[in-house]
Design a protein around this nucleic acid. Structure first.
Lengths: 161, 161
DNA sequence: CAAAATTAACTTGTGCACAATTTAATTTTG
DNA sequence: CAAAATTAAATTGTGCACAAGTTAATTTTG
């Protein structure tokens, strides 16, 4: 009697297959990117999330942990220990904001700034590994960004409405 | 000599912006899916990776840890503790394979099998949250799956050649 | 202005994810 | 057939990711 007369419209069994799921395709490609980045970042002693933090800082140095978190979609529970490790490795400095002692300003050291020139090389390697043209990559990126916003909106919608 | 003559073409600074990166779009949508699944899975006391394991088992019950790992792209270092938790929660059983004592067979309990009927509802909720038609979702899934294979192939290619 | 509410960062605890190592079983080879 | 190589799981150690709770600074309000 288990899955019974079931779902009427009766989604076929294969609808549940891993290979059918968009979420699993996303999950898998995220891991694949991680694997691809790893050897490139290992040379600098960086993890992928640490590299994302540097990408953010190369665009706007000296921002708060909060701002960094907003850009990356991470909270301080993730960022605090990560930034400590980046500081220990000599890539960033963390200083209390004099005008608001609650905040901590994250800024690049010389070592952190210097690494930026290497990032262009990493970018090219990754671009090559994807096998995508700039246009394809850009289109896919925009599709995924839109999907992220759609999912976040649905999520927020569930809480209130 | 690596990427050598290189930056000649001189990628502009904005090429490094987070919003420009395909990898960051992937990273972000993966987290967005996680957030969307969380309230749906919390009701059953499941995490998202645990749910993926059940999806695999609903298609083919009684497989080895190794086979499960191949399907999910995970190793025993991740799966062993995860499966222990799934067993403790009563969703699966783990038994040594009599014909090859190295292997452990993972099979669904009644409780684990029963949960399958709920999965169709989760599928629908997620589908709704993505705001995609079946066709759009399928096309995006196929694009991402192809990209995963491309990245894995580049990765493997780096090690040998 | 003082009490209450809010905010930013940090801390604690749980659960992936993965590299590296260990242990035990099986297979290959000499 | 025994030694060597391989294989499957599990274990250990590091680093995210996130919920929940803490602390200290700031802002809001009565």
């Amino acid at each position: 009697m288990k899955h019974a007369i079931e779902t009427q419209k009766s989604l076929p069994d294969e609808a549940l297959a891993l290979g059918q799921q968009l979420c699993f395709a996303v999950y898998s490609v995220a891991h694949a990117f991680n694997r691809t980045y790893k050897p490139l970042l290992d040379r600098f002693g960086l993890t992928y999330p640490q590299y994302l933090v540097l990408l953010a800082l190369w665009q706007s140095d000296g921002i708060t942990v909060k701002t960094l978190g907003t850009e990356l979609g991470l909270d301080s529970g993730t960022l605090s220990p990560l930034l400590k490790r980046l500081e220990a490795a000599g890539f960033v400095d963390r200083t209390r904001d004099k005008s608001d002692e609650r905040q901590v300003l994250v800024s690049l050291t010389d070592k952190g700034r210097d690494l930026k020139s290497e990032a262009f090389g990493i970018l090219m390697e990754i671009g090559k590994a994807t096998g995508c043209s700039m246009e394809e990559a850009g289109a896919l990126r925009d599709t995924l960004t839109a999907l992220t916003h759609q999912l976040d909106a649905s999520f927020a919608g569930d809480k209130s409405g």
